[in-house]
Design a protein around this nucleic acid. Structure first.
Length: 106
DNA sequence: GTGGTGACTGCCA
DNA sequence: ATGGCAGCCACCA
């Protein structure tokens, strides 16, 4: 665990913090904006160990437009969807967020 | 050092 | 449309 890793996470959290309320971004998109193209999984990991409550992690979803299933079976997915709906993001009948309406155009 | 595991994604059958 | 998989790379056992 070195400095480089720490700054990498900081970069990721900084990008996520820029996503506007009521909009969403994909893991891959966040990775690219953070200067880490092709490293979407790292974004997922960074968010999984996030402890800073000021980072709007709920606005990051997968490339299919859905809230990514967690492995641990925790209720995090439901919390994420609820928090998004609270800020005005609507899900379609298939449980997906229509990108044409809510994707963040950085 | 090695191998398995992901809050992922794009490609291909 | 759906599912499988390789590539990705930090972490942990």
């Amino acid at each position: 665990m070195g400095k480089a890793t720490i700054s990498t996470y900081r970069q990721i959290y900084a990008v996520v913090s820029r996503i506007p309320r009521g909009q969403v971004a994909t893991y891959g998109q966040v990775a690219r904006l953070a200067g880490l193209p092709g490293r979407a999984r790292l974004v997922g990991y960074a968010l999984s160990i996030l402890d800073d409550p000021s980072v709007p992690w709920q606005r990051v979803i997968n490339a299919k437009g859905e809230v990514s299933p967690r492995s641990g079976g925790t209720g995090a997915e439901d919390v994420q969807r609820l928090r998004l709906e609270e800020e005005g993001v609507e899900f379609d009948s298939q449980g997906r967020v229509p990108f044409h309406r809510y994707l963040w155009r950085a």
